[in-house]
Design a binder for these strands. Structure first.
Lengths: 211, 211
DNA sequence: CATTTTACCTACCGTTCGGTAGGTTTATGG
DNA sequence: CCATAAACCTACCGAACGGTAGGTAAAATG
């Protein structure tokens, strides 16, 4: 999709500069509303420099989107591996996602807006759908394992569990884009995992986990 | 924002035709990637006809976005009024939203993609943020009332409850855009409401509501 | 030292963009 | 029957779009 520089250090830096500027503008204005002129203007390079390093505008965008999805997926997998038991896993995942999001806000914004965008807004051939499903399937298998281990209620379908938690996760991340004062830290992660696990309904007589 | 026709029946039909075509293209390609040329071409009217009925491209888009948000909000409010008790209310809301979505797929897609879009992708001055918050606040007050009535666990913050349910709702709607074979009907609404209320964790010894 | 490849440059291409100037037809009220 | 407004039309504008042709300085390679 994009041609990497073959060795020169200056070339590598040019490429990074283009990527940085592109990330900023794509995150702020989306794909269609961002022009390559603005990118090269902000990166202080010429237009053919961009077209030397990347096949076209879509290829440049693709590189960023893949980076975003792959980074997020890796973070989730590593976090899940750290926790023992479903509750710890969910807390670790949420905490890690909140941290990743905080330090890669623009990448995350690109990932979300492309996932929810109209199909024709994003360049054709971009397979963000597969990336989303890979993420989803991981959550799905997580829930299935936890059901098999007796940690989760077997009367729910594992798909509903995966969707429910994935939706909760995504919503808090996207909400944080609009409402930045809502703190997303480990404490919030614990609250949300507990809400998901214990349910919102008032408990009649229960000595269960504290919310 | 847009000038309504003053009485002519043909004029009203022209306006509707423009709105129909615009809805189709904005939903399929987003705001920036949709050109007014394509809209007027599809609506079989001339460009000045569009600019006679609407101030500009942004005004046309604004009309559609407002229609989408207002329709959704009204549906949610009416559904909530139909249910007695928080569980019935949530089931009614989910069912009504699924139905509204099914019959207004393109409007809903516009509402979602603009809500999650990059700020610069959508025309400036579009106050979709207020529309989202109005929706959110309604859910928030719903949860607060249910907590006050002892139906929901007081140990959770009402904001977390509202966000959690809102996130679950939104995720299922957006997921349905990508995975249409996942049926969204009243049965699904009941499952999701129960998941939200009862929680995902396995019950040790509980004669609570059936999931 | 000659040659090839890398890593760009200036200048420009054809197309499409959102939007409008200015004229024309159609319904309406006096 | 004439005037006025509504409801469009054809034709066009300047600007910006994504992308490229053709040339070049510097570095790697023989």
């Amino acid at each position: 999709m994009d041609t990497a520089p073959h060795g020169s250090k200056a070339a590598w830096e040019t490429r990074e500069q283009i990527l940085r500027a592109a990330l900023k503008h794509f995150a702020n204005a989306g794909y269609a509303a961002t022009s390559v002129q603005r990118i090269v203007g902000d990166a202080r390079v010429s237009k053919p420099a961009l077209y030397y390093h990347f096949r076209d505008k879509a290829g440049l965008f693709d590189a960023l989107v893949n980076q975003a999805h792959d980074g997020r997926f890796q973070v989730v997998r590593e976090a899940a591996a750290r926790g023992r038991g479903i509750r710890e896993k969910l807390v670790e995942i949420l905490t890690a996602l909140f941290g990743y999001f905080h330090h890669n806000r623009e990448l995350t914004r690109i990932a979300f807006s492309t996932a929810y965008a109209a199909p024709g807004e994003v360049p054709p051939g971009l397979c963000h759908f597969d990336k989303c499903r890979r993420n989803m399937e991981f959550f799905h298998s997580l829930m299935q394992d936890a059901q098999a281990a007796g940690e989760l209620d077997n009367r729910f379908e594992s798909r509903d569990l995966a969707y429910g938690f994935y939706g909760l996760t995504n919503f808090y991340l996207t909400a944080h884009l609009l409402i930045p004062h809502y703190r997303l830290d480990r404490k919030a992660a614990r609250r949300l995992a507990d809400l998901f696990l214990a349910g919102a309904a008032a408990k009649k007589s229960v000595k269960g986990r504290k919310p």
